[in-house]
Design a protein around this nucleic acid. Structure first.
Lengths: 128, 128
DNA sequence: GCTTGACCTTCCCGTGACTGGAACCTTTAT
DNA sequence: ATAAAGGTTCCAGTCACGGGAAGGTCAAGC
C-alpha cells in the first residue's frame, strides 16, 4: 500500500509519516517508481507511534518505546519508568496551567468588563 | 540604564529583551555607543510583558494587552474578553493533559514494572 | 492516444518564543 | 596596558510538524 492508505490506516497525515522516515522512526522500502511501500508491519508501527504521541510522549520517548516494543527481552520496569517520568512531567504542566487558570480566574472575576477603562487585569499586569 | 540592569529589574533575560525589541514590543532608544538605554517606562513595560507571559498569554496577546494598557480610553470589557478567551484555552489544555494523565495512570498501574517482558503499556500502544 | 485528476516525490520555508554561541566593540578597574 | 565585564549583531538550533511549489506516476474515461 502507498503512503495515503497507510496514513488513513495509521491515523497520521502523510506528511508526518515522511517526517518520521526522515528522522529514522520508520523505514518503508521503495517501489520501482520511488513510492514508499507500506506493509502491515509498518502501518502497525505508525499506529503505535500515533498512539504514543497522542499520550504526549516526545519523539525521542517514542523512539525508545518503539525499540523496547521490538525487544522481546525488555524488562517491563523500563517501560514503566519511562511512562512514570512522562506522567510526572504532565502533572507538572497541569500544575503550572492550573496556577495560571486560578490567577486568571481571580482577575477576570474582579474586572467589571464594561465600557469603562478601569481594569484590574491591566493593573495586575502592571504590578498594581 | 543598560540592558543588563533592565533585565534584572524586569525579570527577563537580556536576550529576551532584544528579541522583544526585534518584534516591536519595545523600542528603547540608543546611546552614542549603540547601547540600548532603558528608562523607568521601558522597564515597566518589560515587567508588564514578563507578567503577562507568565500567565501564559501569547506574544500577540501581549501586544494587544500592551496597547490596551496604553490606551486610556479602552473598555475593560475588551481586556476581559481577551483574558476570558485565554482562560478557556488554558482550560482546554488542562483537560487534554488530564485525559493523558488518567490514561497513563491506568497503564502504569496495570504494569508490573519488573524484569519480565510482559507489559500492558506496550500492549496498549500497539492497540492490544 | 490523450487528457484529467488523484496520487506520489523532493525541497524549502515558516511556525513560537526564545536560547546558545561566535565575533567583535565599549567601558571600567587594576 | 590589560583584563574582565558588559554591550552589539548575526546565524543557527529548538520541536514536531504543515504549507506549498515543481514535477513524476498511475488509472479511468473519451
Amino acid at each position: 500500500m502507498n503512503i495515503g492508505e497507510a496514513a488513513t490506516r495509521a491515523g497520521l497525515p502523510a506528511k508526518t509519516i515522511r517526517y518520521y522516515e526522515e528522522i529514522g522512526l520508520v523505514a518503508p522500502p521503495r517501489d520501482g517508481n520511488g513510492y514508499r511501500r507500506f506493509g502491515e508491519r509498518e502501518v502497525h508501527k505508525l499506529a503505535f507511534l500515533a498512539r504514543a504521541r497522542s499520550l504526549g510522549f516526545s519523539i525521542e520517548d517514542c523512539r525508545v518505546l518503539l525499540s523496547l516494543y521490538e525487544d522481546r527481552d525488555r524488562a517491563s520496569a523500563e517501560v514503566r519508568r519511562l511512562a512514570q517520568r512522562h506522567a510526572e512531567e504532565i502533572e507538572a504542566r497541569i500544575d503550572r496551567l492550573q496556577q495560571m487558570r486560578a490567577t486568571l480566574g481571580d482577575l477576570i472575576e474582579s474586572c467589571a468588563g464594561d465600557d469603562r477603562p478601569d481594569c484590574p487585569i491591566l493593573k495586575d499586569l502592571a504590578g498594581k
